[in-house]
């Protein structure tokens, strides 16, 4: 564990908590893509199945439990409790265009052709594109609530910090995991456009609005 990975995990946790609190406090999931939240929940479920098979550390297990429970709670809030505020008309990204190629690729490119490893690989590839429905929804509505932009900022930052962690580990430990690195790069690059808008608009107190 190094400081970049710890900062990444904290950033990820902050993002998940921000979203959960935003929906719970405002009792509304306006502007939130339920499809992305379903993808994130499946990312965690498929990646953390080893929660029941191997114990790595208290930190590792507790973070996995927190991620899985918060993401499932978020999906529940969006599709059940605050369903009336769910903006389905703008959450129209065809997720099958993500899940099918990702599913196929995880069978072709993986570290080991075993069920757990293929599920882990599927989860890594899926996570790299899971934010697309959310970004697509923002491009369709042409704007995002400021709290939602903070959620996206920390969510995008987390994998960017992991990338630094992997550079650090390659340099000092000679460790590298090409699957995680390539997927992490794709994932972080997808946020670049958002990061630019976040820094130039939201951090200057303006509302994030895309040229519709």
């Amino acid at each position: 564990m190094n400081i970049f990975r710890l900062a990444g995990d904290v950033s990820h946790l902050v993002a998940i908590i921000i979203l959960l609190l935003k929906i719970w406090k405002t009792r509304s999931c306006a502007g939130i893509s339920g499809k992305s939240q379903i993808l994130f929940a499946s990312v965690f479920v498929t990646r953390y199945l080893d929660l029941f098979t191997i114990f790595i550390s208290l930190y590792n297990s507790s973070m996995k439990i927190i991620y899985i429970s918060c993401s499932i709670a978020t999906v529940y809030l969006v599709y059940f409790k605050f369903k009336a505020t769910y903006d389905g008309n703008h959450d129209t990204f065809r997720v099958e265009f993500l899940v099918v190629p990702v599913g196929g690729l995880s069978f072709l490119v993986n570290h080991d052709f075993s069920p757990m490893e293929i599920l882990w690989t599927f989860s890594i590839y899926l996570e790299s594109v899971a934010i697309l429905p959310q970004l697509f929804m923002i491009s369709k509505t042409g704007e995002a609530e400021t709290i939602t932009t903070h959620y996206l900022f920390f969510l995008g930052l987390y994998r960017g910090l992991y990338l630094i962690n992997w550079i650090w580990r390659y340099y000092f430990e000679g460790f590298f995991d090409l699957i995680a690195i390539v997927a992490g790069l794709v994932q972080t690059v997808l946020y670049c456009d958002f990061f630019y808008l976040y820094v130039t608009k939201v951090l200057k107190g303006k509302k994030l609005s895309l040229p519709a």
């Binding site: 995990d9 991620y67 390659y170």
Partner: peptide, 10 residues
């Protein structure tokens, strides 16, 4: 350098 998966990473 060795390319492998780290099960410790989240």
């Amino acid at each position: 350098t060795s390319e492998e998966r780290d099960k410790d990473e989240l």
